[in-house]
Design a protein around this nucleic acid. Sequence first.
DNA 1: TTGTCGCGGGG
DNA 2: GTGTACGCGACAA
Length: 791
Amino acid sequence: MSLNPDEWLWGWDPTPGIVSVWAESDGRAIVWRRIGATGALIREDDRFRPWLLLDRLDDLRHLGTELAPEGAASRVTWRELDGPGALRFLVSAADGKALAAAVLQGASRRLDREIRHLRDLGDEAVLSLAPEEQYLVASGRTYFRDLAFDQLHRLQFDLETTGLDPERARMFMVAVGHPSGATEVLEATGRGDEAEADLIRRLAAVVAAADPDVIENHNLHGFDLPFLDRRARKLGVRLVLGRIPHLGLRQRAARRGVAGDGDSRRRIRFLVPGRELIDTLDAVRQYDFSARELPGHGLKAVARHLGLAKADRELVPGHLIYQVYRDDPDRIRRYATADVEEVAGLARVLGGAAFALATMAPRRYERLADAGPATGVIDPLLVRAYLRAGAALPAHQPGDGTVHSGAALHLFATGVAHRVVKADVASLYPSLMRAYRIGPARDRLGALLALVDRLVERRLAAKASARAAPPGSAERYTHEAMSAAMKLVVNSAYGYMAAGGGLTRFADVHAANEVTRRGREMLDFMCRALAARGVTLLEADTDGVYFAVPDIWTETDERRVVAEVGALLPPLVQLEFEGRYAAMLSHEPKNYALLGIDGKLVLRGVAFRSSRAEPFGEAFLRRAIGRLLRGDIQGVRDAYLDAVSMLRRREYSTHDVSSRVRLTKSPAAYQASRAIRRELSYEALLSAGRTRWRVGEKVRIYRTRTGSGLVDEQDQAPDRRDYDVDHYGRVLRANFAVRLIRALSPDDFGVVFADPDQPSLFTPAFDAMHPVLNALPSPGVYRTIDHAQRG
DNA sequence: TTGTCGCGGGG
DNA sequence: GTGTACGCGACAA
């Protein structure tokens, strides 16, 4: 019995160095521990008493004298927990399967229908965790105590295959990154079944010999493991990647998994006993969720972006890999080796947060790496806290129909503003929860707020420790990762309450609405307080405001105003000076361009960035907006005239005018619909002589006078430049120049983007033109975005 | 135009 | 035995 929030956050058992746990429902648990000092691995066989939470004991009464209160030597024992929660009977037995069977037998009798699985009793009647989680919750143990990330033994492997579909394609190469950092390449020695089977056996042998705690790759769960599993089964090879020799790949249900065989609606991921299977794609997604800076989530793009890619990194388009291998195998060996090296780096740079989470939450490391923070981290923490406190848990409860209201979004002005400042509240929602003590109504222990309080405080400490450690040191890295993990959990506390459809145990739409209501109130207050100090409000969204300041202000004045307004906010709510910009083009809500003091131009929102946009148009837009924000209207006109002229003289390459499209129809499907409606993309393929393509493939197409053409990025086909100049002239004006319409008066806009061939009666005085800023009438500026509840 | 749905990745 | 959100593109109405 403990009401100590530190135990809620970290568990209580001090056992160090746990790197993997495998538990069975018969009460056996195997724990692998890494001794930090020596690097030695220890396997310990432990026992635990499998347990369940029930809303009633009725279903076990049929056991008679075999059911008794805790402390008795009965086969099944129970204890009633305190408080009003529905899940109040903690029952346990030496064997979990027998316990579940006894409950099912009783429930079937009571309900007069056959209950086959505990889940059929519903969330409101039973809580049953995976055996490992039962073990961790009951023991108070967690992974990785007193262990640093770099003390883990991590191995990476990456398959090279002849295609993506394991029904037809084969593996011909596996690159392996060893825990030592060394790499090796395994290759099939021929093209047949036996060569591929041998390759799989050699991979398993390499893994067994290296005996890593963790296996990593990019899209490991989405590609490599399912592919390996399918090939091994097709070839009749027993695939053992775990630490228990007779146990092969197992499966677990996972929303973000691949379709399992049999029921294709079932999504699964693979797991193996004794090792944690980590997919760096999960870490990338989690990272980009808050950072929102990655160009894509593919390995190569992310590695380059994070500075992990070597300058001479070998690159080969996916569909050419096997083809290139046959001509130049060394090139593919270098390519695959670079893949595992980058994965190892990526896992280290981005995987630290999940590693840190595993020192807190009672779940396996690999589960914490792919779980969402609300149901995946906070819920297990709360379950452990309640059981530790001896308190009954509330059951999941469907919402009462109350709609969840969202954040505020105000657009105050459109057009061009100079001397722009962005101020925002750090971690607005958790701050409001703490400041106004807003937590789930049914959380009678106040555990969620206690966890948020602890996490915020510990995070400040972790940030300070990180700053104190030498840059680049393992110690600094550990503290930074801990800080990132804590931020993740803190920021999802609000989402946990707002989750609809009975998704989370303590979901509370009223509490969530109170948080957003306070947030809107806070944003309104900040805007008014700033406006009262003489700034021009531009846009405010959720937790931050862009505003322009008078020309005579210095940065000190800007910071002073932000500090003044910040001082008016409640304690724990901190307004931060986030940045200052030379100018801003405000186009629509969430669509704007910022010119940094350093001259860097940032475009945000759908109006300014689209993957379909033709490169020539994007280039024009960047140049024109750069000129515009510097007040150079002549420069905007020049950008337009240059673009028109380059089009007419066909100085843009075919690639410059092409746009990227995704093919959604197979060749057969298009042939079937072609008579009814012709589509540009497929016509481009056909006219280029391509009759075969794959659904989902992305190609670049462009318009010609008579039809369309294909830009083949791989083959470097001749740059034909036979594009339709008039069409792209219209595109330039209608799709790109129009993004500047808010920046100029209608007359000026007409003049700046006038057709160069239409002579005007007078010489336009571009020097006399100025960008405009239009304040929006106040009733129209206010919008509340409703995040509709999903059920 | 507006609403809905599905994707993001891997060879 | 699971569960992000968001921005974007494709498609249907």
